[in-house]
Amino acid sequence: MGPIANIGTFESVCNLLSHPTRRALLHMLWEIETPTTVETVACALVDADGSQSDGAEQTEEIKQLEIALYHVHLPKMADVGVINYDPRTGTIRTNDTTYIAYNVLDHVLSENDF
């Protein structure tokens, strides 16, 4: 069974990529070395957002994003097979199907303005 069989159904991939946080996360994971952690990813996503939050507001944004990543986005991405995620350690790893999902996202974004 090749990597494409592990990525789940077309509908599950489309659902996965329909959320802006998961799109940003997939893009970021493609560009950084893994393994990485939930905390590192949350900080990077908040920094990439470019918001002009002060220190306390930014810390709260990071905390809220960590919670959302831990409970929603990372498990969903792992269930589809796009990443390997260990909630006990907070470790995130890319895999062969990360490349496939990233290429789908890249193709869709190059064809449409989102």
Rank of each mutant, 00 (worst) to 15 (best):
residue 104 V to C: 05
residue 106 D to W: 10
residue 73 H to A: 00
residue 20 P to I: 06
residue 62 I to V: 15
residue 93 R to G: 04
residue 108 V to P: 02
residue 2 G to M: 10
residue 91 T to V: 15
residue 46 V to Y: 00
residue 105 L to M: 11
residue 69 L to Q: 01
residue 86 D to N: 15
residue 107 H to Q: 15
residue 114 F to H: 12
residue 42 A to N: 00
residue 49 D to Q: 12
residue 24 A to H: 06
residue 64 Q to V: 13
residue 104 V to D: 04
residue 36 T to V: 05
residue 90 G to Y: 04
residue 104 V to N: 01
residue 83 I to C: 04
residue 96 D to V: 07
residue 72 V to Q: 10
residue 84 N to F: 10
residue 90 G to T: 04
residue 53 S to L: 12
residue 92 I to H: 01
residue 5 A to C: 13
residue 36 T to C: 05
residue 11 E to N: 10
residue 5 A to S: 12
residue 20 P to C: 09
residue 6 N to V: 10
residue 113 D to C: 08
residue 54 D to M: 08
residue 74 L to D: 01
residue 50 G to H: 06
residue 99 Y to S: 14
residue 1 M to S: 13
residue 64 Q to D: 11
residue 90 G to S: 07
residue 28 M to P: 01
residue 46 V to H: 00
residue 40 T to E: 10
residue 86 D to I: 12
residue 80 V to S: 02
residue 40 T to H: 10
residue 18 S to F: 03
residue 61 E to T: 02
residue 48 A to M: 08
residue 25 L to G: 04
residue 16 L to D: 00
residue 4 I to A: 12
residue 23 R to H: 04
residue 56 A to H: 11
residue 42 A to P: 01
residue 71 H to R: 14
residue 91 T to Q: 11
residue 113 D to L: 15
residue 44 A to Q: 14
residue 109 L to T: 13
residue 65 L to F: 07
residue 16 L to M: 13
residue 91 T to K: 12
residue 88 R to G: 06
residue 71 H to C: 08
residue 40 T to Y: 05
residue 95 N to Y: 05
residue 40 T to Q: 11
residue 27 H to L: 11
residue 111 E to Y: 10
residue 58 Q to L: 06
residue 53 S to A: 15
residue 67 I to S: 11
residue 42 A to G: 01
residue 62 I to M: 05
residue 109 L to E: 15
residue 12 S to D: 14
residue 72 V to I: 11
residue 98 T to L: 04
residue 39 E to I: 09
residue 52 Q to F: 12
residue 64 Q to T: 11
residue 51 S to P: 02
residue 38 V to W: 00
residue 104 V to M: 09
residue 109 L to R: 08
residue 37 T to M: 03
residue 80 V to R: 00
residue 17 L to Q: 00
residue 4 I to R: 09
residue 110 S to C: 09
residue 55 G to K: 06
residue 66 E to S: 08
residue 105 L to N: 05
residue 46 V to K: 00
residue 38 V to H: 02
residue 41 V to E: 02
residue 74 L to K: 05
residue 104 V to H: 06
residue 3 P to I: 13
residue 111 E to C: 14
residue 22 R to N: 07
residue 5 A to G: 10
residue 10 F to L: 12
residue 50 G to P: 04
residue 108 V to R: 08
residue 108 V to L: 10
residue 40 T to N: 06
residue 61 E to H: 12
residue 68 A to M: 09
residue 73 H to W: 01
residue 81 G to W: 01
residue 100 I to F: 10
residue 25 L to W: 01
residue 83 I to W: 01
residue 60 E to Q: 12
residue 93 R to H: 13
residue 102 Y to K: 04
residue 19 H to P: 00
residue 17 L to Y: 01
residue 71 H to E: 11
residue 56 A to F: 13
residue 7 I to D: 00
residue 107 H to V: 13
residue 59 T to F: 14
residue 31 E to W: 05
residue 35 P to N: 08
residue 81 G to V: 03
residue 32 I to L: 14
residue 39 E to W: 07
residue 109 L to S: 11
residue 90 G to D: 03
residue 29 L to C: 04
residue 47 D to A: 13
residue 91 T to S: 14
residue 77 M to L: 08
residue 65 L to G: 00
residue 82 V to W: 01
residue 80 V to Q: 06
residue 57 E to L: 09
